[in-house]
Nucleic acid binder design. Sequence first.
DNA 1: GTTGTCATGTGGTCGGACCATAACGAAGGT
DNA 2: ACCTTCGTTATGGTCCGACCACATGACAAC
Lengths: 247, 247
Amino acid sequence: MAAEWRPVRQSRTHELVLERIEEQVVAGELKAGDRLPPERELAPVLGVSRSALREALRVLETIGVLVAHAGRGPDAGARIVRNPDDALGRLLRLHVALGSYNLHDVLEARVVLERSSFEAAATHASAEDLAEAEETLRRMQEPDVTVPEFNDLDTSFHVQIARSSGNQLTSTLTSAVRESVRPLILEALEAAEDWPATAAALNAEHTALLTLVREGNGPAAADLAEQHIRGFHGTLVPDTDPSPSGD
Amino acid sequence: MAAEWRPVRQSRTHELVLERIEEQVVAGELKAGDRLPPERELAPVLGVSRSALREALRVLETIGVLVAHAGRGPDAGARIVRNPDDALGRLLRLHVALGSYNLHDVLEARVVLERSSFEAAATHASAEDLAEAEETLRRMQEPDVTVPEFNDLDTSFHVQIARSSGNQLTSTLTSAVRESVRPLILEALEAAEDWPATAAALNAEHTALLTLVREGNGPAAADLAEQHIRGFHGTLVPDTDPSPSGD
DNA sequence: GTTGTCATGTGGTCGGACCATAACGAAGGT
DNA sequence: ACCTTCGTTATGGTCCGACCACATGACAAC
């Protein structure tokens, strides 16, 4: 066989722009809060068209590293920011919807992450965090709460606990994973045979969880959280798509 | 105070397009493998310009939900895929570089995720997985391995274990988190006072880890993994940027 | 002073042209 | 018949120039 010729597949220009900006971020030359030059100036400097530059900026915006505001003044223009939460949430949500991850995997990930969150929250949660979480639970116990509202509040509770753990990363991951199964959980809740009983059971568990966190009993909170999550996922559809392997 | 008037801030069109496509994905109308219509057809159907459509597609591509190939034939065009790994890796890498997450948070996340990975790998890893991981360790023990090579192989080992855990989601997360600190770990390794001794110690720990996984001793593997990771991170720079809170 | 209006600078959108790539298919030679 | 060659075509990728939307600031009119 002659020398195998690999296709060159040269990068698309917007990817080159992206690499260039990423380099500057990793090298610390671009920090949070910094402003990029206006698109009309930056594009010719980089030697690309404004469209290509804009596609690169769009990517950065997608992953929560950049925001752009039109208009004039100090708030206008493209700024480096640190907002990974939305990006991570959308990513996981879409991939769960696509079946990149089956429900069992998501369950295990939730268990692992939330065990950690509850355990850390038990030692790190501030009084404000606890009051906020308690308020959330109170609203979940109102008799006329609808199923979607209940689902949103449930998400809020778990996210609040994660935030109060003091760990930004696990908090973000917890939130994103919880968000990714929100439609499935909503479906399961609406299909519940005895909704009031289900809600009451969940409320009881949440209250017990918050009590353990308030007492600073991390291990017990983690164990109960695991039990809580496993019980909940047990009511979901068994599985969506085994998806033998990547495409 | 009079009624507070919030600005309307109507969505940008590419975001509307994005929502539209996301809906179809979540609703299951677009599945992995499906092809989208050509940009020149789809844009007028959605009532937007090709540029706006392309920015939306670029976002989807960024989060690993879509790939596009030029040319003709069955491989050409925009296809729905499931490739979250690159997207997650880039996201975390950039945000760690930006200081969205400090080193302590990343350490705790690694501990939590990799404990889970090693524990699951102890019961789920196949013979091929173990052989592959062993080969990686063998190459790390070669005397003339360079520091960057060692770092890459170290990453590979941890990712291989994560993959063999059978959980796609924790595997992806583990890999992404490990990738995000790769530059920092490389820096630490290169600053090691006694590199051969450091490498030997790490190799010994890796070998012990693999042995425990092979024996199916999940809890012990998890404990040793935690110790391994904590010891490693202890050699890194103490902290980068406390970053009081989000902007 | 307050208010209205215009100028300016920024991102956002659009349309159309052209380039690059890869498969297809017809023409032609063997 | 088969294979090669080369033009054709469908697709994404890039570029340009214009215009729109938005927010601020400056200035004029009252």
